[in-house]
């Protein structure tokens, strides 16, 4: 009976949460007062990096003054493309050093990278629609675009992220407390051929794994398969900032020495944990994903914010 009840409670909670997401708009997620940092496409990539790090952000919309329009998002994928381009063309240091944000699309084409989607949505559309769009977005971000009422030009009002949406759900849906089935029963943990590396792996190989796997983190395990750290796509910003283009043969362990002291750490859980707990953690901390480990700390799988969002929208 108790399993039946748990199951029923989980289903009813999901239905209520989906109803909530259909009743709200993306505009409702926005704080009453917030800032939006936008970068002019004529800015140098290395200057843009300073701006992101100075403002403690990892992504920003681009604005093209020539067309007076928005020109997509700058994300850590762009910096990964630049590192891969430079690694294959070490003689092109000058070009990379003087690269403008508007030139990132050429770098993407030069290394054959898949261009990031430029899906966007109007702030007044139901939040549920933005969530479904988010699931298919490679950049894991959805710009909210409206139109200037005088010039009918685009306005990027803000950029929604998976984390912002899950935090909004955790803050506003009390039904999240009733998602009590263990995550092992939800079939949402990414297991099997997980891309991982060791502390001594060259950081350039880890960057290739990030890019080829279209993932935003690579777990670092010891000889027994125990999780000891994680290399994240956003760590690339510190690598470039340090000018360590030249020394891409650094091991990933050495590259992680660049991490600033205010890094919160890697979140782990076990497959006995429930979504109610994981969402509560999202409410309180800026968690990027959960690594599933067993009692001895051995890596079993990974649960990304996208996996959690997908389950909430479409699971069961």
């Amino acid at each position: 009976d108790s399993i039946e009840a748990l199951d029923m409670e989980q289903k009813l909670s999901l239905t209520a949460i989906r109803q909530f997401l259909k009743s709200k708009t993306s505009y409702d997620v926005l704080p009453v007062s917030f800032r939006l940092i936008v970068l002019d496409t004529s800015l140098l990539v290395k200057k843009a990096l300073n701006v992101l790090l100075q403002n403690n952000i990892v992504s920003a919309p681009l604005w093209d003054a020539k067309t007076s329009r928005f020109a997509g998002l700058l994300t850590s994928d762009d910096f990964i493309n630049v590192i891969q381009y430079y690694f294959s063309n070490p003689d092109k240091f000058d070009l990379v050093d003087k690269l403008q944000l508007g030139g990132l699309r050429d770098i993407e084409r030069a290394i054959g990278a898949v261009p990031l989607d430029t899906e966007s949505i109007h702030p007044s559309r139901p939040l549920y629609e933005a969530c479904v769009m988010m699931l298919n977005s490679r950049s894991r971000r959805i710009p909210l675009i409206d139109q200037d009422e005088e010039t009918s030009r685009e306005i990027v009002v803000s950029v929604l992220t998976q984390y912002r949406i899950l935090k909004f759900i955790a803050l506003n849906c009390r039904e999240t407390h009733f998602l009590k089935k263990p995550i092992s029963e939800l079939n949402i943990i990414a297991k099997g051929n997980l891309r991982s590396c060791q502390m001594s792996t060259p950081v350039i190989d880890v960057i290739q794994l990030l890019s080829q796997g279209n993932v935003s983190s690579i777990p670092i395990v010891d000889d027994d398969g125990r999780l000891i750290n994680v290399y994240e796509a956003v760590d690339v910003l510190g690598l470039i900032k340090g000018g360590i283009y030249n020394d891409l043969s650094l091991s990933v362990g050495e590259a992680l020495m660049r991490r600033s002291d205010d890094f919160e750490g890697v979140y782990t859980c076990t497959e006995h944990d429930k979504l109610s707990t994981l969402l509560d953690t999202t409410r309180k901390s800026s968690v990027h994903r959960f690594f599933v480990v067993d009692q001895s700390g051995k890596l079993e799988g990974v649960l990304s914010l996208g996996d959690i969002l997908r389950y909430i929208l479409l699971g069961e």
């Binding site: 999780l227 000891i228 050495e254 890094f263 890697v266 944990d273 994981l278």
Partner: peptide
């Protein structure tokens, strides 16, 4: 809950281990 922060991933501990 068994949600935790991986101690060896904290920058200070990682640095100490590597040194």
């Amino acid at each position: 809950s068994t949600v935790a922060i991986l101690p060896t991933s904290l920058p200070q501990i990682h640095r100490a281990n590597l040194l």
